[in-house]
Design a binder for these strands. Structure first.
Lengths: 125, 125
DNA sequence: ACCAGTACAGACTAATTAGTCAGGTACTCA
DNA sequence: TGAGTACCTGACTAATTAGTCTGTACTGGT
């Protein structure tokens, strides 16, 4: 997956959606950008405890390629890059809502732990 | 993931849901069982063109462990085993509906190919 | 007798994905 | 001059996931 674009062939819609959302941090990036609107690289990094810089850009680049994320570069020094969701990114995030609810119910059911929240103010869960 | 159960810790609900649904064939197994109610091992295999026997049982075992799939063994010769969705499997499949619609729209958008359907009668897409 | 079908198990390999770490640029501030 | 900041890149390694292939125990059909 790493280098080339994700373009099927697919068995069905879920298959196609999973293709762009699969990746350890992608759904989290989506959620983070959804909640904050716009984030710089370093902010995103701080918002996702445990992510490596390499995986973060790799995922961001893939999501940009897939039309989920918009990347705005400001030619300044020190460099400034802002990431935000595109229309398709927003709609994907919406489509994930019911799955998120199912997952939250599952966490309760099996009594799974949560990764300690880094920022209660965003209201994320 | 292979051997041990999927039990977090999770960042959020989507993370938890993705954990049980991640795997090349899992969403397809869910869909197949949802559409047919009950399937034997070999029927499932035929329904998922390209899957290897190894991956099929591995995924089925994990989904059973995660409480998504029910496995009914009939002590006959030749062996007969029937797989079906549990209550949780059904609800997960429901929760995936909107994601599937998003994916179907994406397939249209990017003009991706589909894996040639094996059985038009099930109405799957 | 031999092949096909049923539902797997297990060894081994290949491919993919993720993580670590060492730079690298291009400037600003002390 | 040297440190610090922001945003990466690329090499290398580790871990995970998927695929191939062989084998098993039993029976029904040709």
């Amino acid at each position: 997956m790493a280098a080339s674009a994700r373009r099927g062939p697919y068995f069905c819609g879920i298959d196609a959606a999973m293709d762009v959302v699969a990746g350890k941090w992608k759904s989290l990036i989506l959620w983070e950008l959804h909640n904050s609107g716009t984030r710089r690289f370093a902010e995103l990094r701080r918002g996702l405890p445990g992510v490596s810089e390499k995986m973060l850009i790799q995922h961001l680049r893939e999501m940009e390629e897939d039309g989920l994320v918009h990347r705005e570069v400001y030619r300044e020094v020190p460099p400034k890059v802002e990431y935000s969701l595109t229309e398709h990114g927003v709609s994907l995030n919406d489509a994930l809502t019911s799955l998120g609810e199912w997952g939250t119910a599952r966490i309760r059911r099996i009594g799974a732990e949560r990764v300690p929240a880094h920022d209660a103010a965003t209201g994320r869960q």
